[in-house]
């Protein structure tokens, strides 16, 4: 089962310019991110700190902020879209 992750411009320097990535065989957002960390060197340090997301990183599943769901434990299904965005916009 595959989940599509949308990569923000701020992270594309570590994804070789890729704006999207597919991650297979995952059941939670945490596993999706682990899959990305395995594939892209340096990504983990950009968005995570001490095993949790940095405070200015927002992650969405199907447009819903994971903090309204189960955080990194939020379940993902085949075909879901996970979006990573900086949290410092708006107002």
């Amino acid at each position: 089962m595959a989940v599509t992750v949308k990569i923000p411009t701020q992270l594309r320097s570590v994804t070789g310019g890729e704006a999207e990535a597919q991650v297979d065989d995952v059941t939670t957002v945490g596993e999706v991110l682990d899959g990305l960390y395995d594939r892209f060197d340096g990504l983990r340090d950009r968005i995570a700190e001490d095993g949790d997301l940095r405070r200015f990183v927002n992650v969405y599943v199907g447009g819903e902020d994971i903090r309204f769901l189960d955080g990194l434990e939020t379940a993902v299904e085949d075909g879901d879209e996970v979006t990573i965005l900086p949290a410092v916009a708006g107002g």
Binding site: P8, Q10, L11, S13, R46, I47, R54, F56, V57, P86, A87, V88, A89
Partner: peptide, 11 residues
């Protein structure tokens, strides 16, 4: 630009 590429913090 508005977000730090190193840590995602606000600029």
């Amino acid at each position: 630009r508005y977000a730090c590429e190193v840590c995602f913090g606000p600029l």
